[in-house]
């Protein structure tokens, strides 16, 4: 090895580069490459067949994919908005508590402590049309006398998934907004009172602009979360019945592992990631704007 003597800083950084290459760069490039092949897990040699953009072209014409794509965006939009509103109310309520606030904050985080798989099982049980709590309760209260097919009807199943998703993650919004509320200086609120604001006006003109950046952080995190949603849906409906609740990642995993069409699945995954990146950029822009507005020093 005489003659090749790297500078000390290159030598010191090398291990990091090697690890990074091994666990991130190589798999990333490999998956990107495989999205340009008809790679099937059952026929390993297909990875050497380069077919250019054929997988992508096929996707763009694939209605099933776009339905799943659209459903994911719909889930994301509705869940984010509802979680935002509920989280805001929750945070405002908890912030008002003068005693036991610590305890309330801890309780508020309970849903986040369960694995999404377990949440999925729990809600699958609750929404079960025969033995589920929900139908049982509705029937006992005399609100209906038939078994509502929660997880079978396509709209109801979507709603059920939505409820499970919202239940498990509203606290993300609540925690961030509560952090914002607690970090908020109290004097501007008092100034607003003196300036003639009703409580509602104080919220609209002073509190809300201040907590907006915190809400955007929560939105960024949750949009990534939902864009890669898989576990709850996998457990509750597995995208079914008859693909009525198929979302991007259930479709991708089915394509990759059940159908063994890894090349096509990777192409889907890249489109899906593109969606995530888009949302992240969108929310970070909003965040930057909101931060600048309140003159935040973080």
């Amino acid at each position: 090895m005489r003659g090749w003597k790297p500078a000390p800083h290159v030598l010191l950084l090398l291990p990091a580069f090697v690890v990074l290459a091994a666990v991130v760069v190589v798999p990333l490039l490999l998956s990107l490459y495989s999205s340009f092949t008809p790679f099937r897990l059952t026929r390993p040699e297909t990875i050497y067949t380069f077919i250019g953009f054929r997988n992508y072209l096929r996707l763009f014409a694939d209605q099933e994919f776009w339905v799943a794509f659209g459903r994911t965006v719909l889930l994301l939009t509705i869940a984010l908005n509802l979680e935002m509103v509920l989280g805001l109310f929750l945070a405002l309520l908890v912030e008002k508590a003068t005693r036991g606030q610590r305890l309330l904050r801890t309780i508020m985080m309970f849903p986040m402590m369960f694995s999404p798989i377990l949440v999925g099982f729990q809600f699958k049980f609750m929404f079960n049309d025969n033995i589920g709590l929900v139908n049982n309760a509705l029937q006992s209260l005399g609100l209906t006398d038939r078994a509502i097919p929660w997880l079978i009807d396509s709209h109801l199943a979507f709603t059920s998934i939505l409820i499970a998703e919202i239940w498990s993650s509203t606290s993300v919004f609540a925690i961030f907004i509560l952090a914002g509320l607690m970090a908020m200086p109290k004097e501007p609120l008092e100034a607003a009172k003196v300036d003639g604001c009703t409580p509602l006006q104080s919220f609209r003109y002073v509190t809300w602009p201040f907590i907006m950046p915190f809400a955007y952080i929560a939105m960024t995190i949750r949009s990534l979360d939902i864009a890669r949603a898989y576990d709850i849906v996998k457990i509750m409906t597995d995208g079914g019945p008859a693909k009525r609740t198929e979302i991007l990642w259930t479709l991708i995993s089915r394509t990759a592992y059940s159908d063994a069409r890894m090349g096509l699945a990777n192409a889907m995954a890249y489109v899906a990631i593109f969606l995530s990146i888009l949302f992240t950029i969108l929310f970070f822009r909003q965040l930057a704007k909101a931060r600048q507005q309140i003159g935040a020093e973080w």
Partner: peptide, 19 residues
Amino acid sequence: PPRQRNISMVFQSYALYPH
């Protein structure tokens, strides 16, 4: 409530609306 007292107040920390 303060808004019906027709007063103005200047606070130590200025309490300007940052946005």
